[in-house]
């Protein structure tokens, strides 16, 4: 009875893990199929779909848009978010909870609400169908991730190091550059990676703000999935998954440097 219960328990847990992994695991093999429809298990082996995607002008321009927007949004969110996180970490002030709530709230606001709100406001400001509009919107989404990440790493800095450096005669700016910044760097970098991926994967806001010229890779995928499912989509998906995996490894590497 006891053993049966145990076996059943582990079966359920194992099936849940399989359920979690299945959709990710099947995408990559499917991109190698020689059939023209998406099949799992794939039939044969070809890299044609990758060639088709990499050679296509619309995918190329989408890729460039995605990269430019994600890098710019990540840079902006990292600078603004890091500064705010440092201040939040070190100071108590009135309204701190409110500021904290504001900085984190883009994370819990339904994206569709943000998308239509930004669409209305940005169209008045001439920001719709521009890369700048996308950068600003994605920065909003990314700031909370940077704040959380930097706050976590600032919490681990030994607070007596700064007075020590000043006491030894270093200037403030020198102390900031050589003591503070290196110590919080892992948090800053993993925040930047989070910010990049947030923008890189974002589709709902981009659907409202981008046009044919400024559309990003997720929009191309969205259009493909809604019209026809072909293995080229799986090839793009596989490339994106590879990039995300690289990002994750990077962000863990930054954390390892610390510990």
């Amino acid at each position: 009875m006891d053993r049966l219960r145990r076996a059943l328990f582990w079966l359920i847990v194992g099936l849940t893990a399989l359920f979690l992994l299945l959709p990710t695991l099947i995408i990559v093999p499917m991109s190698f199929t020689t059939t023209t429809t998406l099949e799992f298990p794939p039939v044969g082996f070809t890299l044609d779909w990758y060639g088709k995607v990499i050679g296509a002008a619309d995918w190329q321009s989408a890729l460039i848009n995605s990269l430019v927007v994600a890098i710019a949004a990540a840079a902006l969110a990292t600078v603004v978010g890091t500064a705010a996180a440092l201040a939040l970490h070190a100071h108590r002030f009135r309204g701190k909870t409110v500021v904290m709530g504001l900085l984190l709230s883009p994370m819990v606001t339904p994206v569709i609400v943000l998308a239509v709100g930004m669409y209305m406001v940005f169209s008045g400001w001439g920001l719709v169908a521009t890369r700048l509009g996308l950068v600003l919107a994605h920065t909003v989404l990314a700031i909370p991730f940077v704040v959380v990440s930097v706050l976590a790493s600032a919490g681990m800095v030994n607070p007596s190091l700064v007075p020590a450096s000043l006491g030894l005669g270093a200037s403030r700016w020198f102390t900031f550059k050589r003591v503070t910044l290196p110590l919080i760097m892992p948090g800053v970098l993993s925040g930047a990676v989070f910010a990049f991926i947030t923008s890189w994967d974002e589709v709902v806001i981009a659907l409202f703000l981008a046009d044919v010229q400024t559309r990003t890779v997720p929009i191309m995928i969205w259009n493909q999935v809604r019209t026809n499912l072909d293995p080229a989509t799986a090839a793009v998906a596989a490339i994106l998954i590879l990039l995300s995996a690289l990002g994750v490894l990077l962000s863990y590497k930054f954390r390892d440097v610390r510990s």
Partner: peptide, 30 residues
């Protein structure tokens, strides 16, 4: 508790950009 060496008023200037940015591009659209 400060992990960096600047005076207290710096906190305001550190937070202001993020708050302004979100006020303009997040709160205002809502």
């Amino acid at each position: 508790r400060a992990p960096w060496p600047f005076r207290v008023p710096t906190a305001f200037w550190l937070i202001a950009p993020a708050v302004l940015f979100l006020a303009l591009f997040f709160v205002f659209p809502l």
